[in-house]
Structures are given as C-alpha cells and as structure tokens.
Amino acid sequence: MIDVLGIGFGPSNLSLAIQLKELAFFNDKKVRFFEKKKSFSWQPGLLLPNTNLQIHFLKDLVTLINPKSPFTFINYLKEQGRLSDFINLNVSYPSRMEFNDYLFWAANKFEDIVSYNSYITDIEPKYDGIQVSHFKVTYVHDNIPNEIETRHLVIASGRSPKIPSAFFQIYDGINVIHSDQFTKSEVHKIAS
C-alpha cells in the first residue's frame, strides 16, 4: 500500500512532487507517479522556434509557494550557467524551449518515483463501511498489467484536445489540426 499515487507526470503533478519533497513527505511516506508517455515531455507539439511563454517566469513550478526552493526557474538557470545571460536579455517570458528544458531538469530529479510508459486501466474504490478507505489501481507498465493500492489518488492526466463541434465532421488531423499536433503536421512541414 502506498500513500499517494499520481496519475500523469506533467507540470501539475511535478509541482506536487516538489511540494511533497520539500515538506519531507517522502521521509516516511510512499509516493508513486504513473505517466503514459515514454519520458517526460511538455506540449511537444508547441515547441516552436522563437516562441515564448505567455506567463511570467516566476510562475514556475514552485516560486510563488517557496521562492527559496532549489526547484525554481532561477535556480535552474544558475545550475545551467545561464542566469547572467537570461537577466541580460531583459525578458520576463522565457522561450518555450528553455522552459521545457527547465521542466525536464526538474522532472529528472524524480525518476525514482515515476513509472513512464504506464497507463491506468481501472480505478476501484475500496470501502470501510460507507467511507472510501483506499483505491485499487490497475495499470499497464511496459505492456505488463499490474495492480497497486493507494490511500490517496491525484489525477492530473493533462489536457485533451478540445475540438469545437463545428469541426467534428472535417477534423482529420491533416487539414484541420489541434495546435498540440502542429510540429508533427503537414502544415508545419509546408511552413518550414
């Protein structure tokens, strides 16, 4: 039985992992995250050259909660030897590529508690009388089915493409695409 199971390991659950680590939760609790992708990635279809974030860099994974955290974007820049260069650029919105590198840098610090290439097939609540006491989670890791039980479940499975109903009939992934698929699309190849 583990204490916390996170489904998905994007920025939301990555931020949760950081918080749990900084609150010393890992000292006496068992935590696990499952991610269906084979490795960490953040909006890969939108990692275009010369594009910037639309939010200030201080809205990273942790700064607003703990500015002294070693997981801040500023600390990432310092460890990469890029802090002076970034400050001299006089920008508040880093490139999407650099922010992706920051997220990847932070995610790598949790490799021991993340199972990539894993997806959930069933979640069954278990009861103690009328109260849910824990969950039995069935998952597939590297094509092998498994089960695990957890006291707490955090679902952060990411955004799914939302296709407006007006486009259902013509959405084909070729002429009409979701922005998350842009860098893999024919449109991107033509534009490049």
Score class of each variant (00 low, 15 high):
96 R>F: 06
78 K>F: 08
107 A>E: 02
75 N>R: 13
84 S>T: 12
117 N>L: 00
98 E>C: 02
51 T>V: 07
78 K>E: 07
56 H>R: 10
59 K>W: 09
49 P>I: 00
64 L>P: 14
67 P>H: 08
117 N>W: 00
57 F>N: 08
90 N>H: 15
53 L>N: 01
91 V>T: 14
63 T>I: 06
61 L>F: 09
83 L>S: 04
54 Q>E: 14
91 V>D: 14
49 P>D: 01
57 F>V: 00
58 L>P: 05
58 L>K: 13
52 N>I: 06
79 E>I: 06
101 D>F: 01
89 L>D: 14
56 H>P: 11
104 F>T: 10
66 N>R: 10
55 I>C: 15
69 S>C: 13
97 M>R: 01
57 F>Q: 02
81 G>W: 08
114 V>A: 11
87 I>W: 06
55 I>M: 15
112 D>P: 13
81 G>K: 09
76 Y>T: 03
85 D>M: 08
118 S>N: 04
92 S>F: 15
110 F>C: 09
75 N>C: 07
97 M>D: 05
94 P>M: 13
83 L>Y: 14
65 I>E: 07
96 R>Y: 10
106 A>V: 12
88 N>H: 11
73 F>G: 07
101 D>P: 02
51 T>M: 03
101 D>C: 01
88 N>G: 05
109 K>P: 08
53 L>R: 00
92 S>Q: 15
90 N>T: 15
77 L>G: 08
103 L>H: 12
75 N>L: 04
119 Y>L: 08
53 L>F: 11
54 Q>V: 01
56 H>S: 09
107 A>W: 09
89 L>P: 03
86 F>R: 11
104 F>P: 00
97 M>W: 00
50 N>E: 02
68 K>I: 01
76 Y>C: 12
100 N>A: 14
89 L>R: 15
54 Q>M: 08
70 P>C: 06
54 Q>Y: 03
60 D>S: 03
84 S>C: 08
73 F>N: 10
94 P>C: 09
86 F>G: 01
58 L>A: 07
53 L>K: 00
104 F>C: 02
95 S>I: 01
112 D>I: 15
82 R>W: 04
90 N>C: 13
58 L>T: 15
100 N>P: 01
47 L>Q: 09
119 Y>V: 03
56 H>D: 15
85 D>P: 02
92 S>R: 12
109 K>T: 12
73 F>H: 07
112 D>K: 14
85 D>R: 11
72 T>G: 03
68 K>G: 04
51 T>L: 01
118 S>M: 05
99 F>C: 10
89 L>C: 11
84 S>A: 13
106 A>F: 03
114 V>C: 10
83 L>D: 03
49 P>Q: 00
115 S>A: 09
54 Q>D: 15
83 L>A: 09
47 L>H: 03
52 N>T: 12
82 R>G: 01
87 I>N: 01
94 P>H: 08
95 S>N: 05
53 L>I: 12
87 I>H: 05
78 K>H: 12
59 K>H: 03
100 N>W: 08
101 D>E: 06
118 S>F: 00
59 K>S: 11
95 S>D: 06
65 I>K: 07
